[in-house]
Simulated scan of single mutants.
Amino acid sequence: MSDLTGKTVAITGASSGLGQHFARLLADRGANLALMARRTDRLEAEVEALRAKGSKAVAIALDVSNVGAIGPALDAAETELGPIHVMINNAGVGGEGMALDITPEHFDQTFAVNTRGVYFGAREAAKRMLASGVAEASEARIINIASIAGLTVLPGLTAYCASKAAVISMTKGLAREWTRQHIAVNAICPGYIETEINAHWFATEGGQKQISRMPRKRLMDITALDEALLMLAGPAAGQITGTAITIDDGQVL
């Protein structure tokens, strides 16, 4: 079990879904948490709940599509909590739309959040990990949340699939660039987990039909990623970099 006591973890998209779950999981392992998202009212409520349980946490407003805001947000996290050890690039949007229908604005927003936000989130975190000595101590961890959509073709989600495939590729490329600086860069590719981003779909007849076509005819539980996340955030990832771990309950089989 990874002990992250005193380590500072920054999580984007932390106001709900996976980001919120990751924050609670890592708080239980002793991490100091910088929760980042656009919906600051939700962040503040989550931070208050974490503090009530004895965790050290701060809420920082951040829209990752504004890449110029990422560095200052990480600076604010370090001012409050100390050097960043773990960066979890979790913020994402759906990117639904058939190729003949999706607007250029919707396409661009999908890539702005899912791809550019991850790339520059990783870059800005790496800069600070190098400057603080966290990288030199072999404690620097960057975890990008990709998707099985980056590994297969999903109907009506071409833009989304492309954005997540780019995350997998950039994870490997950044891992290669920073391997001698001892910054571990890895990705997790989750299967379908019901969160705010997709709950409306899975409540429909079409969503239920999709679930029925999955090999195990079910969605994954939100806890399915826990062990992989803890491994990649902790000491074990000192010798793991450039990896994209698929956890999907066999959904792409």
Score class of each variant (00 low, 15 high):
residue 5 T to F: 05
residue 6 G to Y: 09
residue 7 K to Q: 15
residue 7 K to E: 13
residue 7 K to V: 02
residue 7 K to M: 14
residue 10 A to F: 14
residue 10 A to I: 09
residue 12 T to G: 06
residue 12 T to M: 07
residue 12 T to H: 09
residue 14 A to R: 06
residue 14 A to N: 07
residue 15 S to T: 12
residue 15 S to E: 11
residue 20 Q to W: 01
residue 20 Q to L: 15
residue 21 H to L: 03
residue 23 A to C: 09
residue 25 L to V: 14
residue 27 A to E: 06
residue 28 D to W: 00
residue 28 D to S: 15
residue 30 G to A: 10
residue 31 A to T: 02
residue 31 A to E: 04
residue 31 A to L: 07
residue 33 L to R: 05
residue 35 L to S: 10
residue 37 A to K: 10
residue 38 R to C: 11
residue 38 R to K: 14
residue 39 R to T: 12
residue 40 T to K: 12
residue 42 R to Y: 03
residue 42 R to I: 00
residue 44 E to P: 00
residue 48 E to P: 00
residue 48 E to D: 14
residue 49 A to T: 11
residue 49 A to H: 03
residue 50 L to E: 03
residue 51 R to E: 15
residue 51 R to W: 05
residue 52 A to M: 05
residue 54 G to H: 11
residue 54 G to M: 10
residue 55 S to C: 13
residue 55 S to I: 04
residue 55 S to G: 14
residue 56 K to S: 15
residue 57 A to E: 09
residue 58 V to C: 11
residue 60 I to V: 14
residue 61 A to H: 13
residue 61 A to T: 12
residue 62 L to D: 11
residue 62 L to V: 12
residue 63 D to N: 13
residue 65 S to L: 02
residue 65 S to I: 05
residue 66 N to Y: 03
residue 69 A to L: 08
residue 69 A to G: 11
residue 70 I to R: 08
residue 73 A to L: 09
residue 74 L to Q: 08
residue 74 L to W: 08
residue 75 D to H: 05
residue 75 D to W: 11
residue 77 A to N: 09
residue 77 A to H: 06
residue 77 A to Q: 11
residue 81 L to A: 07
residue 81 L to S: 03
residue 82 G to N: 10
residue 82 G to H: 05
residue 83 P to D: 09
residue 83 P to N: 01
residue 84 I to D: 06
residue 84 I to S: 05
residue 84 I to C: 04
residue 84 I to W: 04
residue 85 H to M: 01
residue 87 M to Y: 10
residue 87 M to A: 14
residue 88 I to C: 03
residue 88 I to V: 15
residue 90 N to W: 03
residue 91 A to W: 01
residue 91 A to K: 02
residue 91 A to G: 06
residue 92 G to E: 02
residue 92 G to H: 01
residue 93 V to Y: 00
residue 93 V to C: 01
residue 96 E to H: 08
residue 98 M to F: 12
residue 99 A to V: 15
residue 99 A to Y: 04
residue 100 L to R: 08
residue 103 T to M: 03
residue 106 H to K: 14
residue 106 H to A: 15
residue 108 D to N: 12
residue 108 D to G: 00
residue 110 T to D: 06
residue 110 T to V: 13
residue 112 A to E: 02
residue 114 N to I: 05
residue 114 N to G: 04
residue 115 T to Q: 12
residue 116 R to A: 13
residue 116 R to G: 00
residue 116 R to D: 04
residue 118 V to M: 04
residue 118 V to E: 05
residue 118 V to N: 01
residue 119 Y to V: 11
residue 119 Y to M: 14
residue 119 Y to T: 02
residue 120 F to V: 03
residue 121 G to E: 02
residue 121 G to K: 01
residue 121 G to H: 04
residue 122 A to F: 00
residue 123 R to Y: 12
residue 125 A to Q: 09
residue 125 A to S: 13
residue 127 K to R: 15
residue 128 R to N: 08
residue 129 M to V: 05
residue 129 M to Q: 14
residue 130 L to G: 01
residue 130 L to S: 04
residue 130 L to Y: 02
residue 131 A to N: 08
residue 131 A to I: 04
residue 131 A to H: 01
residue 132 S to N: 07
residue 132 S to F: 06
residue 132 S to Y: 07
